[in-house]
Design a protein around this nucleic acid. Structure first.
Lengths: 154, 154
DNA sequence: CATGAAAATCAAGCTTG
DNA sequence: CAAGCTTGATTTTCATG
């Protein structure tokens, strides 16, 4: 969490560009492309990790292969008296909820959910989400098509 | 893209659980933990990749280190005459837009944007997003706090 | 940059249901 | 027989001085 003055140059960007696309790219193959030693890449990566810019690396799972075809956003209205953290704790226990945001605007919470199909989504909402104490109302937006999905540009 | 009947057993889950958390976990260390050979893990991973369940691996960048502190969702209303694909193409040129969804409900498009601060968001919306031909109106929801952020459960 | 140690990869061959 | 595992040789990568 130490904020050292972080300077990323062109070489860092090339390194990260590779690893953002494929975290298992061999460091030496990047080194060969850039024309510097593998050890140099190592040092830069350690620096980037220490700075916190690189938060880690993850395998990406394709939900469709597991039969999860329905992606939706759900705006959640809370009772005025409700404890936000209590509701989040309940939402966290629902594995289909993959994101939650405390938001300004119409609702208190916006969540992203992954379901197998529309029936699954419907039962999830009525049997689980809307059963949570403190949630008064929900508003659902199906994602029919996700085009852009990327990370921040370096 | 061949859909072979995919069966993932407990061993596959252990392997993926490690790699979802850290894509650079050495395969042999997973092998030792499970008690099978590294080559066996390798074979299973090839199978999982061939099935499409594993969509790849990515380095995760922490936007805050780059000064991007503001996350927002923006609902985009389109003119009835508007071409969705044209608008998406324009949105795709805006690097701050990291997700886009064609949605049912109030808007046509829901996007997720990353900005350095509120002024940056404001100028992004007025100077770039709302300049796109076909976009009639936008509605912004600031994410004040993101708690849940994960992948689908295996 | 060079080097020993570790890991990944590959090809047979073995085991088991 | 087929699927999955093991073994061991070979290549590649890692991490350190």
């Amino acid at each position: 969490m130490k904020e050292k003055e972080l300077r990323i140059d062109g070489i860092d960007k090339v390194i990260l560009k590779h690893l953002i696309n494929d975290a298992r790219t061999p460091i030496l193959s990047i080194a060969r492309e850039i024309g510097i030693s593998g050890a140099a890449i190592h040092q830069r990566l350690r620096k980037l990790e220490a700075s916190g810019l690189v938060a880690g690396s993850k395998f990406m799972i394709n939900p469709k292969v597991l039969g999860y075809e329905t992606l939706a956003f759900v705006g959640v209205h809370l009772d005025t008296a409700s404890k936000y953290s209590e509701v989040i704790k309940r939402l966290n226990e629902i594995s289909e909820v993959v994101e939650s945001h405390y938001t300004t605007g119409n609702w208190a919470i916006l969540i992203k959910v992954l379901c197998k199909n529309n029936e699954h989504l419907l039962s999830l909402l009525s049997d689980k989400v809307q059963q949570i104490k403190g949630i008064s109302k929900t508003e659902t937006f199906l994602s029919l098509d996700q085009h852009i999905n990327r990370q921040i540009k370096l």
